[in-house]
Write a protein that binds this DNA or RNA. Structure first.
Lengths: 159, 159
DNA sequence: GGTGGATGCTTCAAATCCGAATGTCCCCCG
DNA sequence: CGGGGGACATTCGGATTTGAAGCATCCACC
């Protein structure tokens, strides 16, 4: 099964997949253990807290979270039920709606953030030296640019 | 929200999370587009194909896939229904059972592998130079060792 | 100013996933 | 032997996720 990936890259690929899976489930567990939030909840709160007016269109949010539209609808409904966000219809485009951070949502984020960031550091970041951080950043920012949906990829593979 | 992660590490963390999410969904889409298999199906087939006797205990499989026990039960049942694996009760330990690769499962893997590996190369590996591969491998193998569940972590964090 | 196609989001049914409870079986210790 | 605690896997109910279909609105063009 290794016809098309050399041994080094295969090992790299497998280590990346497995460790990432473990890391994500661990962070999720940590977050749930000390905050009523899931990883998705937390990420929504972060994005809203940084947005101008602490509000974001559903589509924009879905794009950044890498969520399907229906998944985001469910996610926001759930958070709305718990009072973490509100939903308002968008004045510029009446098809659309936007999610708005509530005071309770901001508070929940403020309470969860230190724990979560400690968890990210403990499981991942504290083990990385500066060169490794730089390497990961370069690799994953490049990957993100290549995979973001807004780019027509037709001319970039002259092969 | 950045009290505990410096700007470089925060950027690194975000790039890693977002790109990985995008990569996994893209690979899943590619795999489904040209093979009746999900990413999880594929991974199960790979692990079984490499195991001695092309069989693995459920628990072992769950551990390697980073799946909860009930999720693995569901996964294997689904693949059994489609003829990709068989389930046998384990002779040494009658509580347990093992998943066994079938001829159809092996065939499905052989057909899917070239497409999938091409996809992994196209989206990720072809963009990495050797130094980056080495860096990722080192980082993620270390991370995997730290997160694998078999280690008692009690003495490694003297505060 | 109308209309056909696109867009933004939601809804719906079905598939998947999780944690708690369960049923079997192993193994240690009396 | 003969419990009893523990380990392995499954089942069950409920939560989440998905993709397809639906609805309302926008917009480019006539």
């Amino acid at each position: 099964m290794t016809e098309s990936l050399d041994a080094e890259r295969m090992a790299c690929w497998r280590a990346y997949i497995e460790s990432s899976q473990r890391l994500f489930t661990r962070l999720e567990d940590d977050l749930r253990a000390d905050s009523e939030l899931s990883f998705a909840d937390y990420h929504v709160l972060v994005l809203l807290s940084e947005a101008p007016g602490q509000r974001l269109r559903m589509g924009e949010l879905a794009g950044r979270l890498v969520f399907s539209p229906s998944r985001l609808t469910y996610q926001v409904s759930s958070m709305q039920r718990r009072g973490l966000v509100a939903r308002q219809s968008c004045p510029q485009d009446r098809r659309g709606s936007e999610a708005v951070l509530t005071a309770a949502g901001l508070l929940a984020l403020r309470e969860a953030a230190p724990h979560h960031l400690r968890s990210v550091r403990a499981h991942l970041m504290d083990d990385l030296d500066d060169a490794e951080v730089a390497c990961l950043t370069r690799v994953f920012e490049r990957l993100g640019r290549r995979l973001r949906p807004d780019r027509d990829d037709s001319s970039t593979h002259p092969e």
